[in-house]
Amino acid sequence: MATPAFEDIAETFDFLDDWEDRYRHLIEMGKALPPMDSAVQVPATKVDGCASQVWILPRIEGRSFDFQGDSDALIVRGLIAVLHALYAGLPVDQVEAVDAQAALARLGLDEHLSAQRSNGVRAMIARIRQLAADAG
């Protein structure tokens, strides 16, 4: 049930043979992520459980789920970009059905992130699911 945007990322990761190239690509994705206005980087949008500072702001239009995210760490910004590609545009009632861990495993991220970063990704996924559930 991957979105076309996520499939594009998966194809790029498949093309990049070396994990260091994938890591660089993830950082570039983070650099390309639009910055979040500091006015909405408040405790209500902050994601607990991440070693880095992470904020996720939902943007729900009708029944379509979207969010804006930001972090003070480039690699985490890249992870936010991947999660955005995975979830953005889905109907809010389909967000919980996404197997994010399996999707991230397709990219090899499950094997190459530190335990601390993996915990942060799980916290971001939980927050995204909660935001969608609240909107539903």
Rank of each mutant, 00 (worst) to 15 (best):
F6P: 07
E7S: 12
E7F: 09
D8S: 14
I9S: 02
T12Q: 15
F13E: 09
D14E: 14
L16P: 05
D18M: 07
D18V: 13
W19E: 11
W19P: 09
D21C: 06
D21H: 11
H25Q: 14
H25K: 10
L26P: 03
I27E: 08
I27F: 09
G30W: 00
G30C: 09
K31W: 11
A32Q: 13
L33E: 10
L33R: 08
L33G: 02
P34S: 10
P34D: 10
P35S: 11
M36F: 03
S38V: 15
V40S: 13
V40D: 13
V40P: 03
V40Y: 08
Q41H: 08
V42E: 08
P43K: 12
A44Y: 10
A44V: 12
T45F: 08
K46E: 15
K46D: 09
V47P: 13
D48N: 15
G49F: 01
A51I: 14
S52I: 12
Q53S: 15
Q53V: 15
I56F: 01
P58C: 09
R59N: 15
R59W: 11
I60H: 12
E61H: 15
G62S: 08
R63C: 07
F65D: 06
F65G: 12
Q68N: 15
A73E: 07
A73L: 06
L74M: 10
L74V: 00
V76P: 07
R77V: 01
G78F: 02
G78N: 07
G78L: 01
L79Y: 04
L79D: 01
I80K: 03
A81P: 07
H84S: 12
H84L: 08
L86W: 02
Y87C: 03
G89I: 01
L90M: 02
L90I: 02
V92I: 11
D93E: 09
Q94F: 02
E96L: 01
V98N: 03
V98Q: 01
V98T: 00
V98M: 03
V98G: 01
V98L: 08
D99K: 05
D99N: 10
A100G: 08
Q101V: 05
A102S: 12
A103K: 09
A103S: 06
A103L: 13
A103D: 00
A105S: 09
R106E: 07
R106I: 01
L107P: 04
L107M: 05
G108F: 05
G108Y: 10
E111R: 14
S114E: 07
A115N: 03
Q116K: 04
R117Q: 06
N119S: 13
V121T: 04
R122H: 00
R122T: 11
A123E: 06
R127Y: 05
Q130N: 14
A132P: 11
A132F: 08
D134C: 00
